[in-house]
Design a protein around this nucleic acid. Sequence first.
DNA 1: GTCTATACATCGATAGAC
DNA 2: GTCTATCGATGTATAGAC
Lengths: 208, 208
Amino acid sequence: MSKIKTKTSERSKSEAKAKAILKGAMKEFLAHGYAATSMDKIAKTAGVSKATLYSHFGDKEGLFNAVMQDLVKDKFQTVMGLQKPQSLEQDPKIVLSAMATRMLDNAQSDRTFQDFVRIIIGESGRFPELAQAYVSNLAKPAIETLTQYFKSHPELKLDDPEATVRVMIGTLVYFVMLQEMLHGKDILPLENERLVNTLTDLITKHQD
Amino acid sequence: MSKIKTKTSERSKSEAKAKAILKGAMKEFLAHGYAATSMDKIAKTAGVSKATLYSHFGDKEGLFNAVMQDLVKDKFQTVMGLQKPQSLEQDPKIVLSAMATRMLDNAQSDRTFQDFVRIIIGESGRFPELAQAYVSNLAKPAIETLTQYFKSHPELKLDDPEATVRVMIGTLVYFVMLQEMLHGKDILPLENERLVNTLTDLITKHQD
DNA sequence: GTCTATACATCGATAGAC
DNA sequence: GTCTATCGATGTATAGAC
């Protein structure tokens, strides 16, 4: 019994360390990118020794991949929860408008999400498989779910629901990129409401 | 006379070195990003000594800023030339469709442009003033020019030309990001033509 | 102005004690 | 499993010869 207890206790300690490492590494990688983040700094932030980093995750790339995999899973919840229409029976005009507003507000206030996207794009040359994980696990489900919604509303009379989804998502994502991530908000001011109204009007125009 | 000749010759040599450094640094920064690029590698690529790098550009950040400033100016020509309608008198439906197709084809085949955008976004946390230079000198002129075109065509009956421009640019840019830069082309295939047609139809729908 | 040589810090990664 | 201590390589930046 004491044997099991000890084993459990040791495993818990080890797993707790792993969690602390992932948390500290996430903070550092999100703040400074892959190359500019040192294993020394991660060890200090996580409160463990550098050797413990390596015993848990092999090398720097291994730790980075583990961190990003965690983040992709985390953000999947956010993204999918966000674009799920709250009441499917309502007028698509209202549903789309509310959905776009919600997505915009959330992305604009979530600094972690912005840093996450920054890294995905910034490191997509060096880590193509990471970029593809983003596409497969985040962009694709979001696009497909929204496509299903469009297809289930033939009264919108959309010639190409899938391409229309690209218009909507692209508009919203690039807007957040320009205004927030690229600090363009003061240079090219534009209210969320104007973008959302314009987007919604364009998509629901044939409904009238 | 020989004095002037010597001076000129020396200045030319120095300026030639500076050009070579910028060219080599551009290649390295675009390929590996800021932090992962070393001054040693740049010196080797440019065919000069490391000390010459520092005597011309002060430090690594100075060289990086000089390179990116050059690139912003370079890409300004491309972007503005691209979205300038070829014949203003034609049906906007045809003009917009041709313009979108041209922008897409160009961005998709220009690897340097993709690397450039990758760096702008990837380093926008560490170099906010670089990101704002992109917004002021590239995004803003492009958006304003296209807005002027929309405003000069009231038959499009656009409620908000400026916001409509954001829809168009955002759709095209994010599409190139997903398909090319994030290597999503095989995961989420979609033909340029479908996107362009959908975008053009949405914008010119009230014209009918 | 440009080079070689080098100073000095920091990097990723590991050996060995406990 | 986790630590301290350290290795060798590589980073930015500069001094001094020419």
